[in-house]
Design a protein around this nucleic acid. Structure first.
Lengths: 185, 185
DNA sequence: GTCTATAGGGAGATAGAC
DNA sequence: GTCTATCTCCCTATAGAC
């Protein structure tokens, strides 16, 4: 099972660096030092690998939210930005949501559905955090919680991508914090 | 030359719907009703096609800016959002910048460079528009022009992508206008 | 300009040996 | 679990006829 974990980690790197249609079983096998046919022992198809990737991201995010459950709402959002920012700092990666979105129309139906669920999971967490923030008067009530959550989500996702093109790993964080400064009360 | 134009239009659609690594010469040829080999008469390689695409986007944007040069700065930015919003309304397309960003690390060097130039072109136009807006006191001076431009750019790009996953062509515009409401004085 | 034919490579995937 | 061998399909790209 160790090999499966390693393969998933390698696949995550490739995904966030080159897109879903930008890497192959061969790439993973090479890095892992095994033959690509052997990978089919763990993942019957590339769709299966994709599903496993999403599940992994989803579980990581779930764990992450539990770890930060006790924080003040504004701090939660700052930590969220931090998490995304680590992608950028790790070789100018982008977030999985952005990747799967671009390749979305090339994905098999099951994968599409799962990708959407991951986006919703993040969206819902952000919405709750924002609603808390409005309640505790740390976030302006100008926009509705859901609207603000979408705005944060869109900005962080876009900022990761812009940062890559600008070859500037630090840009993502400052762009996102700029938005936050406008949202803070 | 008419065939070349048609091929470019078809390629643009595929690019914004399926990503750079998500379509092939075959796809364009099928839609055009010719053989894929014939496409190489117009575009020697896929890289060449990519370069032609970027050039086309860049020229279109250049024309677009000239058409809107006389507008008030805030109106300019609203029109910019409108333009991006038409992508979303046209089959949940995303912007070329977002597409090329995800596939960025799989691109040949020349294409990479050209993609970056397109991003800079947009960025510079936005920065000027924001600077004007701050001068004429229609935009808050809280953030620097360049910072605000990047924020708008990241948000509009991300909002297009989120809108696709939410299967909601109208979401892009409302998310972007939400940001604008925070920036307005 | 567009065609047929084809080269050459890489993709995902499977069968069966070890 | 991992291997070799192989299948099928699709990709970009080229040569040369029409």
């Amino acid at each position: 099972m160790e090999t499966k974990r390693l393969a998933l980690e390698i696949a995550k790197n490739h995904l966030q660096l080159r897109g879903y249609n930008g890497f192959s079983f061969q790439d993973i096998a090479d890095e892992l030092g095994i033959r690509k046919a052997s990978l089919h022992y763990y993942f019957a198809s590339k769709e299966d690998l994709g599903l496993a990737l999403i599940e992994d991201y989803s579980n990581s995010f779930q764990e992450w939210t539990q770890k930060h459950a006790e924080l003040d709402s504004l701090e939660k959002i700052k930590k969220f930005i931090d998490m995304y920012s680590t992608f950028s700092q790790d070789g100018l990666k982008v977030c999985p949501g952005g990747v799967f979105c671009i390749d979305y129309n090339t994905l098999p139906p099951n994968l599409k559905k799962t990708v959407c669920q991951l986006q919703e999971q993040i969206q819902e967490w952000l919405t709750k955090a924002v609603a808390e923030g409005i309640k505790s008067k740390s976030i302006r009530p100008t926009l509705k919680p859901k609207e603000t959550a979408t705005l944060i989500h869109a900005t962080t996702q876009g900022a990761l991508q812009i940062a890559r093109m600008q070859n500037n790993p630090k840009a993502m964080k400052s762009t996102s914090l700029a938005l936050l400064s406008l949202l803070e009360k």
